[in-house]
Design a binder for these strands. Structure first.
Lengths: 328, 328
DNA sequence: GTTGGGAGTGTAACCGGTTACAATTCCAAC
DNA sequence: GTTGGAATTGTAACCGGTTACACTCCCAAC
């Protein structure tokens, strides 16, 4: 039950060879005669020997692990990001620590601690104060996910043009004049950027930007926003992401109202739900898996001492469906 | 950038003491004179020294980490379970590897590998073949989460009476006669158990159990089930969990139909969304965070060599809301 | 018959901590 | 002035791997 696993020295003794030879056989490097190899392999099989990760990592001075840090873990957004991370890490035999800070106060300490067991970290914007990121980045390879500008040495983000295009589409093509922004611009750099684009799109047309309803990024927050949004007499709700948009849509439909008839709703991300619901959710498609994969690739490059571009921008794209009023 | 951190020996040299003393000061054990302690602490602070996790773990023969293994990571169910795990692990300075197997074919190898870097694992039912679990459990402390019966030495699960009670409630109190079970009983032990209870509740009243619609456990699966469920002329859809129930509800409302008027819908779990949507979702409340917390506590006990009960059952409870037809 | 070189293997140092044990110092008590 | 014991500190072994280097064979080429 408890860890009574064999060590190299024991296997070596059993096979009648030195530890060096056991290591050579297990790792398949160096030259070993066929006869010796067979002996050693037999001992390895018989006892189900697997080298301790600790010894291995200590000797290699490499943990073979990295951490991805998110504000939380719920929802398809993070799931897809993590998929992307793992699609790169797993084939390279690198294991992944997924950390959800949940904005805990002790999160910084936790990260400092987890930094001791990984070779590098990918940190999602809005998880932890900039000072902490600076401290981490000073000692360890760090890649930021999201448009966080300053403290980050290396940033991977998506283009934000498509979101501005979305707001312009609502204003110019659908003639909406009273939009509310659902999301908290102070909560994460992604949302800050989107709010700025929301304002810019209004100003470009000489309009006064609408209000914001500050709330979180989960479905529940969208549901909870419904009363206020409906009471305000808005003609459209531009949500910070698909999850709040879907939550809001569900609440609106549940009240017997129609989308887009009674309220236009849009999101960001294009998560799987968005194309399945009726009406289909107009949104901005972002390559989430690719975002996670790219961040991971860059992080591994960084760990290997390669030069890495300070900013990598992936494209995003406006997806018009029925919820904004476009025919489908 | 790369890991140029100081080692004990360097700090020791700088402070003019031995490595043993540095270790004593850092860990606050043994006796050290005030003067020496101050010298060492100064050196530690100045260089921001933190002991390498590897050296520490190797010397202690303890990783200070455990793994939780899930089929996937999306959705509030797993998020809440993970919260529970972390609520126990974090205060005890144990770090948590969250693994989503996504039912990958290479998952077993991955687990064998991750087992080398943790002290034990909590494995959610339905993630990995029983033979693999047996192999893992033979060498490492393992706790199963869910009603998986056989291969598991230690199991934490919730009571399943409330689910049966739910089905009886629909049949007996609301007089429904054509129920469909939405979920795949073969997909996970949880669902197997629910399907069995579904059948038993029917038989108890001398009724023929309804059909099943086999699908996954995410919201998207619920949405996709809508066409078939609505076409079948059912009066109620008993969903395997809240997420599919919410997806289905959204799809039904999106078609302009009413819940429970046109279709009764129920779930399991009582995730946060379920009490917020309108109509409120009738469901079975399960103490998810407590489930994760308990599994973690037992796992840590097991790692510490304590005796642990083979099965721990937590209560679940029927929650009636509007979606089954009860007044709200 | 040497010599040279490659293949096979072992020895021992090292990665970065912890800790049992020994050694030293200091002081109080006799 | 001894002696005994507590407090402080250092030495060195150990955790479990990897690998530079040295050593021993063996065989072909001169």
């Amino acid at each position: 039950m408890t860890d009574d696993r064999m060590s190299v020295r024991e296997i070596a003794k059993l096979a009648g060879v030195s530890t060096a030879t056991v290591s050579r056989v297990y790792r398949g490097v160096g030259s070993v005669s066929a006869a010796t190899r067979a002996k050693v392999q037999a001992a390895i099989e018989q006892y189900g020997y697997r080298p301790s990760h600790l010894g291995e990592a200590l000797a290699n001075r490499r943990h073979g692990a990295l951490a991805v840090v998110f504000p939380g873990l719920s929802g398809p957004y993070f799931a897809e990001l993590i998929n992307g991370v793992e699609s790169v890490a797993v084939p390279r035999q690198v294991s992944v620590h997924v950390i959800g800070t949940h904005l805990r106060r002790e999160a910084p300490d936790e990260l400092l601690d987890v930094a001791r067991r990984v070779d590098g970290m990918a940190i999602h914007g809005g998880t932890v104060p900039k000072t902490v990121i600076k401290e981490l980045a000073a000692r360890h390879p760090v890649v930021m996910i999201g448009p966080d500008p300053h403290p980050a040495p290396i940033v991977v983000r998506t283009d934000h043009q498509a979101f501005r295009q979305l707001v312009s589409h609502l204003l110019a093509d659908h003639g909406l004049r009273k939009l509310i922004f659902v999301g908290n611009p102070a909560g994460s750099p992604d949302l800050t950027e989107r709010w700025d684009a929301f304002v810019a799109a209004h100003e470009e047309l000489g309009l006064r930007p609408g209000k914001q309803f500050r709330t979180g990024l989960e479905q529940t927050h969208g549901v909870q926003a419904a009363d206020e949004v409906l009471a305000g007499g808005y003609d459209g709700a531009v949500c910070g992401n698909d999850e709040t948009a879907l939550g809001l849509m569900m609440a609106v439909l549940g009240r017997g109202l129609r989308v887009p008839g009674d309220l236009v709703i849009t999101g960001v991300d294009d998560v799987p739900m968005s194309s399945l619901v009726s009406p289909g959710l107009t949104t901005v498609a972002r390559p989430l898996a690719e975002l996670g994969a790219t961040a991971t690739r860059l992080l591994l490059d960084l760990i290997n001492g390669a030069d890495v571009a300070p900013e990598t921008v992936l494209p995003s794209r406006l997806v018009r469906r029925a919820s904004c009023g476009c025919e489908d």
